[in-house]
Simulated scan of single mutants.
Amino acid sequence: MTVLEPIAGERVIHRINPVAKLAASAVIAVALVLSIDWVSASVALALEFALFPWAGLSARQFVRRTWPVWIAAALGGLTILLYGQPSGDTYLRFLLVHVTDGSIELSIATVLRMLAIGLPAIVLFATIDPTELADGLAQIVRLPARFVVGALAGLRLVGLFIGDWRALELARRARGVADHGRIRRFWGQAFALLVLSIRRGSKLATAMEARGFGSAPRTWARESRLHGRDAVLIVLGLLVASAAVSVSVATGQWNFIAGR
């Protein structure tokens, strides 16, 4: 199993419509993007961690799926700490580096906000089946079927690309051309994978056209609908976003980005 593959299961979270998962994560993201403050982000993050045990991921799966978010948040916070807008007392100044009270506070807010936005999105996406997502986007959101099905076909080929990359490595090693020049070998192998992917894409497009894709109104093998459990998840997202904004405003920490 790769990191990109969905996690299957029989829990309630696995039966929730992918559109509802997208809506819940989008509501939280929009609310947190509107302000740069540590209070709203910390409140949202605390509520999210209280809900994560019901997200259908074990502790190991959670770490394996979310480690890029933790690294990105740490790097983003470090950048803001060293080069953020200075204000208040100065603690370190060297060339372009300027660490002040304002940059420290802004760095903490940035880290918390990136985690509060990224973690629920990754956790919810981990239990989304690409085919069910395509069904929901086309039938509920009413996105164009040609675009949705084409994107689904491309996503399904990601696993094949990984297999092709490994096969190319083994083939080149068997011919004795993979023992040195790692950087040069990478670009040559990437070009070979590009050629292979273009050929596979052409064959896939021909096969879809031969089956009449896009020539008539499309029907769907699986009907996608929203149910009560989907509404519960969206409401939970709204509650998390509302609580974060309310506490931030009540404590006077709300810092609307349009006013900066």
Score class of each variant (00 low, 15 high):
His14Ala: 10
Val235Gln: 06
Thr206Glu: 12
Ala205Leu: 02
Gly228His: 05
Phe125Leu: 06
Ala241Tyr: 04
Ile183Arg: 03
Ala216Pro: 04
Ser35Pro: 13
Gln139Arg: 02
Trp254Ile: 00
Gly154Ala: 12
Leu4Thr: 11
Gly259Pro: 00
Ile140Val: 13
Ile104Ala: 10
Asn17Lys: 10
Met1Gln: 08
Gly228Asn: 03
Leu51Gln: 04
Glu169Gln: 14
Lys21Val: 09
Pro217Leu: 10
Trp54Asn: 08
Gly136Ala: 01
Ser246Pro: 00
Gly176Ala: 07
Ser246Cys: 03
Asp179Glu: 07
Val69Arg: 03
Thr90Met: 15
Phe213Leu: 11
Ala24Asn: 04
Leu137Trp: 02
Arg211Gln: 09
Ala121Met: 14
Asn17Leu: 09
Arg260Ile: 11
Thr100Asn: 06
Val3Gln: 07
Ala72Phe: 15
Asp230Pro: 12
Leu239Pro: 07
Leu137Val: 06
Val249Ile: 14
Ala55Leu: 06
Ser107His: 06
Gly214Ser: 08
Phe256Ser: 07
Gln61Met: 12
Ser42Leu: 15
Ala109Gly: 13
Asp230Trp: 05
Gly77Met: 07
Thr66Phe: 09
Glu48Arg: 01
Thr100Val: 06
Thr100Gly: 04
Phe62His: 04
Phe125Asn: 12
Arg185Ser: 13
Val232Leu: 12
Leu236Gln: 12
Val43Asp: 02
Ala41Asn: 04
Leu160Val: 15
Asp89Glu: 15
Leu168Tyr: 00
Ser197Asp: 01
Asp164Tyr: 05
Gln189Thr: 14
Gly252Arg: 07
Val3Ser: 08
Trp67Lys: 04
Val240Gln: 09
Ala126His: 01
Trp38Arg: 15
Gly118His: 10
Gly214Leu: 08
Met1Arg: 13
Ile108Arg: 12
Arg185Glu: 04
Arg260Trp: 14
Val43Ala: 10
Val158Met: 14
Ser242Asp: 03
Ala243Gly: 09
Leu143Asn: 02
Leu4Asn: 05
Asp89Gln: 14
Ser42His: 06
Gly188Leu: 04
Ala50Asn: 02
Arg172Leu: 08
Val69Ala: 15
